[in-house]
Design a protein around this nucleic acid. Structure first.
Lengths: 135, 135
DNA sequence: TTCTTTGCAAAGCGTTTGCACTAGA
DNA sequence: TCTAGTGCAAACGCTTTGCAAAGAA
């Protein structure tokens, strides 16, 4: 494997992701980084997101929406996708290692990890619907 | 919503999926159905797969591979993706409703369900590697 | 200097869609 | 007959890639 060299673009992408609680798409990352490096290209954003994810510095979220999302928090946790507004939120509190262990007990291959996506309705959409009904 | 009419193509797609344990991509479904209906188009396959999935008659698996896969078994269960050969297997035995309930306890919106994808190495790839090492 | 990363633009690939035609009810 | 479904081909949207120039070590 080739030696990794520093790049200010990659650092900016990493910093941007670590500092947020939402889960931006590649395009959202691109827009944000362009405010610091106006010449950055979408290709560079994709290359760095893929690189960072492969190194475990960020997490790639492929939950069946049209585009992937990225998460700067690397602690074991899960995600919930609002079927109404598309927002992706973090969900802590489920024991990820226990889930892997339970699966390993039912499987004759090896299990390295998992991705768990919940689908539902976020608090905001839930309340908006409630206020529509009550008038 | 428009009334649903019977279509022999859709029935063939459904029957094909229900009869298998692997998890074909749209393209694999297309190839298979073309042996019965040589004129079927890829667009029709996609339209019917989307329709069947939206009706809950099949399950769409979006586990981050380049293309989605489809599953004719609709009982609650999970999937495991082999990182080596890309094969997707069913995994039964984990209590899906319990997972939803645990998540609901940590979330202030509503949870309707989830998709849980394990990543690892299937039995076949595991054994192939072992026999390579021992010679 | 040497090798990695970048910007740009084009290509790739899975999926969706518009339209005229076919077929189910 | 009336409307939903089909086949075809073009378009779409996200992502990847080839290449020459720029930048890190």
């Amino acid at each position: 494997m080739a030696t990794l060299k520093y790049s200010r673009q990659r650092e900016a992408i990493k910093n941007y992701l670590v500092g947020r609680l939402d889960h931006p798409t590649a395009d959202m990352v691109y827009s944000a980084i362009r405010e610091i490096y106006p010449n950055i290209s979408l290709g560079t954003v994709y290359r760095n997101l893929t690189l960072l994810a492969s190194q475990g510095e960020i997490i790639k979220i492929s939950c069946g929406q049209n585009s992937d999302r990225f998460d700067g928090r690397t602690e074991l946790h899960h995600h919930i996708v609002c079927e109404k507004c598309g927002q992706v939120e973090d969900l802590f509190g489920l024991n990820a290692q226990m889930i892997d262990q339970m699966a390993a007990g039912n499987y004759d291959g090896d299990i390295y990890g998992h991705q768990l996506y919940f689908y539902g309705k976020c608090k905001k959409c839930k309340e908006e619907e409630k206020s529509l009904k009550t008038g």
